[in-house]
């Protein structure tokens, strides 16, 4: 299912509502649905805030699908080239005083995804995300 989104923060709750409905219709657990909407929230927030320095209205797309035991998300935008996977992770071991405010959104999206793949194709950013909808098999490192 393809969702067209404007580069506006207020679009995020609308997208998340559509995705929650999609999850319900495809019997995705509330817990996994929470993770999927949080990933989308973080990635779209990042695109809206940084992809279009011209501050004009643009559109990006979110394609959500259920393939086997995975929910797949493909986000495409025509903003400036940005590979979220190339960004340094925040230092989650640093003290309160040293801990930097920010940089957490992409990190959370990475933590919650089973697979993330970035490509720059024909002047567009394409991010492919896979989330297994059964929690078995996901190694949380605990």
């Amino acid at each position: 299912m393809l969702i067209i989104v404007k580069n506006n923060i207020n679009e995020i709750s609308r997208v998340c509502d559509i995705v929650r409905k999609f999850c319900e219709e495809h019997n995705v657990s509330n817990e996994k649905c929470h993770d999927i909407t949080l990933i989308l929230d973080e990635i779209i927030t990042n695109i809206v805030n940084y992809a279009y320095p011209d501050n004009k209205e643009h559109e990006l797309s979110v394609d959500i699908d259920k393939i086997g035991v995975h929910i797949t998300l493909r986000l495409v935008d025509s903003g400036i080239a940005f590979d979220p996977l190339a960004q340094a992770d925040p230092d989650v071991e640093s003290s309160l005083e040293e801990r930097k405010v920010g940089g957490l959104g992409i990190f959370i999206a990475k933590q919650l995804s089973d697979e993330l793949k970035y490509s720059r194709i024909n002047g567009q950013n394409q991010l492919d995300i896979r989330v297994a909808i059964y929690s078995e098999g996901k190694d949380n490192g605990n």
């Binding site: 949080l38 929230d41 927030t45 309160l96 405010v101």
Partner: peptide, 14 residues
């Protein structure tokens, strides 16, 4: 809660 909310909690802690 998203990272936007965590940011506020961290700022409050600091």
């Amino acid at each position: 809660i998203s990272s936007a909310g965590l940011r506020v909690v961290l700022m409050a802690g600091k």
